[in-house]
Write a protein that binds this DNA or RNA. Structure first.
Lengths: 136, 136
DNA sequence: CTTGACCCTGTAGTGGCTACAGGGTCCATG
DNA sequence: CATGGACCCTGTAGCCACTACAGGGTCAAG
């Protein structure tokens, strides 16, 4: 059997690709449980912490907010519960992502058209400045 | 000739579609020049403030940062200067928008595939939770 | 025993606002 | 002339999700 050695915060940071400060931050906001401390007052982490932090990081990579992640972690606890609530959170997030993409694409079109009009003259006749300045 | 009446902050907010607090904030960070004050210590704005604030708002709607807007406003001052620097800022911003769209689309694909796998069972066999949890 | 990598707490800063609290001003109505 | 309500003032704190110190303590190798 594998006797797993406890990790200090730097090691946990390395294996999860998280910054040390971010781990402490997750602890402060209650996403990561308060870990045990060594004799020298160092935080010591085990497998459960590693798993939980990995979960958080993956969810963050997918753009979930810490609030959503908190909800997902709570839901994940109760393994008998229906996973519809999980689905709802994920769908809400996807809707948000869809909306952001649409907004950015509108922006992209406007910017591209603005830039396309640049004649590289002087500022007085700059189309970009003109487009931003108030009418007349 | 039109004698333009000075606006107080609320009126300026209404005509530019900005919140009063936002106008004060732009003043604090030096984007809007400090306005004259009335006898009762109210800010009083004229045409130049209106123009400048409109510029800021349009640029914000296009997603430029306040830092970029500051640069654009500086460039707009010197009407003889070549507008290439303006073009550079706009292009950098467009590149940023392009990048954000690409990132969000990658997210969108991942999320959609995750959600598509939901079988609406219980959490123990939830694909979404599984996908987030660490491997085995 | 010293060095340097690591860890601790606490605080402040980021961007771009937003939201108070606790007051002052202005003007129309009674 | 008093009152009420809409407006304005300053200053501070909060939002999100960190990030970056400052000023110290701990630990292990050489």
């Amino acid at each position: 059997m594998v006797v797993e050695k406890p990790l200090n915060i730097g090691a946990l940071a390395r294996v999860t690709g998280t910054k040390v400060e971010t781990i402490r931050w997750y602890e402060r906001v209650g996403l990561l449980p308060v870990p045990a401390r060594s004799a020298g007052n160092y935080r010591t982490y085990g497998e459960p912490h590693l798993g939980r932090l990995s979960f958080i990081r993956r969810a963050r990579d997918l753009g979930f907010s810490l609030e959503q992640i908190r909800a997902l972690l709570d839901l994940a606890e109760d393994r008998e519960r229906s996973c519809d609530a999980v689905d709802v959170i994920a769908r809400e997030h996807l809707d948000e992502v869809d909306r952001k993409i649409a907004d950015l694409q509108a922006l992209q079109r406007e910017l591209a058209s603005l830039i396309g009009q640049c004649r590289h003259g002087n500022v007085a006749e700059c189309r970009i400045i003109e487009a931003l300045a108030p009418p007349k």
